[in-house]
Design a binder for these strands. Structure first.
Length: 220
DNA sequence: GCGACAG
DNA sequence: ATCTTGTCGC
């Protein structure tokens, strides 16, 4: 999965998309993981952070991070090829592997039905859920402004996820199953992870850690 | 050809 | 993603 051309990457996505399994998330599990990245412009590197939490209490368990050289440019639709190498490196540092992963990006809500969350799920063979801050593709009916409002996200006549207003008056979240999950349980998981803010707490924690590390490392 | 386009 | 201050609205 290293030095692919964009067209080869798209071809690989179409192939791997056939392996994605859609089904409800496990009813019982004990560790939830969340991953996020920050970018170090000066060295053209990525910092990958994975934070794990006990479920369902969401108490922090451990946090790992790695620096990784960028091997693939950012291309809309091919984000996973840029981020996954760093995420796998961080994953190897974990003492206790998560049962389920929350990802900062799309899952099924992708032109070839193979967003970042699907890719990570297939490689780790674990349930994953995608939670993106903005839309990549798909259409939906108008969303009410109140917290909790939701609309199915459609792509070519099939539902690929939900557009979900996590807080009143904020921009919605784009939630879609990655692997070993489905639209409804993906939304359920995100709802269960919400705290006071727009983003689910695990992703906020991973994002804050990644951002803080970037600034810390710039001074090194 | 034109607009859209996760992080 | 990152570059960036004040400011409008819950």
């Amino acid at each position: 999965m290293d030095r692919l051309s964009p067209s080869e990457a798209r071809q690989l996505q179409e192939q791997l998309a056939g392996r994605v399994v859609l089904r409800p998330l496990p009813a019982v599990f004990s560790v939830l993981g969340a991953a996020d990245l920050s970018y170090i412009k000066e060295t053209n590197q990525l910092i990958a952070v994975i934070v794990t939490f006990s479920w369902p209490t969401l108490q922090p368990l451990e946090s790992v991070h790695v620096k990784s050289a960028i091997r693939f440019p950012y291309v809309p639709g091919l984000l996973s090829f840029r981020e996954i190498p760093a995420m796998l490196k961080a994953y190897a540092q974990l003492r206790r592997p998560p049962d389920i992963f929350l990802c900062d990006g799309q899952g099924l809500a992708h032109p070839r039905r193979f967003g970042l969350a699907c890719h990570l799920g297939i490689l780790l063979e674990k349930p994953t859920v995608g939670c993106a801050k903005t839309r990549l593709c798909g259409n939906h009916e108008p969303l009410e402004a109140e917290r909790g409002a939701r609309q199915p996200l459609w792509l070519d006549g099939t539902q690929v996820g939900y557009v979900y207003r996590s807080k009143t008056g904020v921009k919605p979240l784009y939630i879609s199953p990655g692997h070993l999950a489905d639209c409804n349980s993906a939304l359920w998981l995100v709802e269960r992870c919400l705290g006071r803010y727009r983003l689910p707490e695990p992703l906020r924690a991973a994002h804050h850690t990644a951002t803080r590390l970037r600034k810390t490392m710039m001074a090194t």
